[in-house]
């Protein structure tokens, strides 16, 4: 089923604060969808609610109201092991601070999601090597995270996120801790994965350069979708970058 929607968020609302405490509404009413092979960026200033949105989508937190459907399943209703299994099979994550386990080698880090699913060791080795070849990190497999640079760590994290062939890859400021060269390489890699594997990607970022690699950008302001930009087929990336900057300029006002 081509062009099926991977994520469907309906009227998401999130209110923080317990009963006696002062309430704070992080998300007011957000609805949108992500289709197969989509590459979506979520942008917004600090405190706009973009991280809250990501946490809802990635099942790390539950919305106060509204639903999130991923691959046709309402994840807000999932609990315990079902939720864990769903994460393990359908989603991949890359984080700003890499979140690699520093006591495992790169190969072990990448293979971890497969180990958790109980795949046989031989199969794990094969898959890890295959993905390492694709991301050009074979020579890093036996190293520990402490021996790697930031860009290399993020590639390993990327490989770990993709190893179970997820429906959707979530990135939370994945270039935040990288220098510009490493950031450019990573974004290129994500774009390549998106085009080749048709893996849907959702990036949360406040960096216009990172966002310019996306096909579609959702701007969040004060807990609501403020605007949406779509990159035209004919539009070059630098052009799109400029457009994002312009949009951000008007958006701040």
């Amino acid at each position: 089923m081509e062009n099926n929607s991977v994520i469907q968020a309906h009227h998401l609302k999130k209110v923080y604060g317990k009963q006696q405490e002062r309430k704070y509404t992080a998300l007011k009413d957000v609805s949108f969808s992500v289709t197969t092979g989509d590459f979506v960026g979520v942008m917004g200033a600090s405190g706009s609610g973009k991280t809250t949105l990501l946490n809802m989508l990635a099942t790390f937190d539950r919305p106060t109201a509204g639903t999130v459907e991923i691959a046709g399943q309402d994840v807000t209703q999932l609990k315990g092991n079902a939720l864990a299994d769903f994460r393990a099979k359908q989603m991949g994550f890359i984080f700003q601070d890499f979140n690699l386990l520093e006591n495992l080698t790169s190969a072990q880090n990448i293979g971890l999601p497969l180990s958790l699913q109980g795949k046989p060791a031989k199969e794990i080795d094969q898959i890890v090597i295959k993905i390492a070849q694709a991301l050009e990190i074979e020579n890093l497999l036996s190293k520990y995270p402490a021996q790697l640079s930031g860009g290399q760590k993020q590639r390993i994290a990327c490989a770990r996120a993709l190893v179970n062939q997820p429906q959707i890859l979530f990135g939370d400021e994945p270039t935040g801790a990288l220098d510009s060269k490493a950031a450019r390489e990573l974004l290129g890699l994500l774009q390549q994965i998106n085009q080749k594997e048709k893996t849907a990607i959702l990036l949360v970022t406040h960096d216009a350069f990172s966002a310019s690699y996306c096909r579609r950008i959702i701007f969040i302001k004060d807990g609501e979708i403020g605007h949406e930009l779509v990159r035209q087929a004919s539009q070059s990336r630098p052009d799109f970058y400029q457009q994002i900057l312009d949009q951000l300029g008007t958006f701040e006002k």
């Binding site: 386990l101 006591n103 495992l104 072990q108 293979g111 958790l116 109980g118 046989p120 060791a121």
Partner: peptide
Amino acid sequence: LERFSFAKRGLNGFTLAQLRF
């Protein structure tokens, strides 16, 4: 022990690595 295939089952590898560190 980490070389054996059982180290790749579930969290075994993680536990071994934790212990080694």
